[in-house]
């Protein structure tokens, strides 16, 4: 169980303020989705949470402890991070790539755990196959498995649904939902607002480096924010207990 707190976090990259004074309190057992148009600062915000870049202001604390000051290995034990970069340098078997997510287990246990996660992601038949021979979607799932096997209590995933077909997108979100229900803090960035509306406990709405709103989907996906931030017309409806978002484009500004 872990809580992650951002207070006044700012990041400047190449002279431009990419994340500006973001403060947020993220609790265990919840699934947070970061949304925002291109260039809103979603990736930078996730990297700041994972302590992968230097903060130009503010701080990130994990259970009250400054993340920057934590020894890298201990930080890694608390946080699992999936970057947007999906390259794999060597043609390792899928199961070995997934097993990288649990370096603290013995090799046999790690492989067992990796295999069952690959199975859950529909990859049991290719578990011994080299990753170079997999399709883009399969490779994306192998890399997701690497995070899902981790015993970390915070999962940070940057665009985890890239390259997945609609069925697998939903399946992966269900899997992440389960992890949140087990008590993990799950934070992911998404472009698909429909899925964000359906699966998130809370949405972090980023726009021009600022956290415009952090609240439930019914608040964030209001007509006001949709038009101001995304230049979209739309409304969120409750259909038989499911949140369904309807979107229409607006003329380009």
């Amino acid at each position: 169980m872990a809580t992650l707190d951002l207070s006044d976090v700012s990041v400047i990259l190449g002279g431009e303020t990419v994340v500006q004074s973001v403060s947020a309190h993220l609790e265990a057992g919840k699934l947070y989705v970061v949304v925002g148009p291109n260039g809103a600062g979603k990736t930078t915000l996730l990297k700041a949470m994972a302590s992968l870049l230097r903060l130009d202001g503010g701080k990130v604390t994990l259970n009250g402890e400054d993340v920057v000051a934590m020894p890298p290995m201990r930080r890694a034990a608390h946080m699992a991070y999936l970057p947007q970069e999906r390259s794999i340098a060597w043609d390792l078997p899928s199961v070995d790539v997934a097993a990288l997510g649990c370096p603290h287990l013995t090799p046999e246990l790690a492989r067992q755990k990796a295999f069952s996660e690959l199975q859950a992601l529909g990859l049991q038949e290719v578990s011994d196959r080299g990753v170079f021979g997999l399709s883009g979607g399969q490779r994306a799932r192998v890399l997701l498995a690497r995070v899902l096997v981790s015993s970390a209590d915070i999962y940070l995933l940057d665009e985890p649904l890239i390259a997945l077909d609609p069925a697998w997108q939903r399946h992966v979100l269900i899997r992440l939902r389960e992890r949140a229900d087990e008590g993990k803090t799950v934070v992911l960035s998404l472009h698909d607002l429909h899925l964000a509306a359906q699966f998130a406990d809370e949405i972090l709405l980023m726009h021009r480096g600022q956290l415009v709103r952090k609240a439930g989907p019914e608040i964030v996906f209001s007509a006001k924010y949709l038009s101001e931030v995304f230049n979209l017309k739309g409304e969120l409806n409750d259909v038989a207990g499911q949140r369904i978002l309807r979107l229409e484009s607006m003329p380009l500004l």
């Binding site: 992968l52 699992a80 991070y81 999936l82 970069e85 340098a89 890399l143």
Partner: peptide
């Protein structure tokens, strides 16, 4: 193998 960011994380 999975890139510098993954390694650092």
């Amino acid at each position: 193998t999975l890139g510098e960011e993954t390694a650092r994380s």
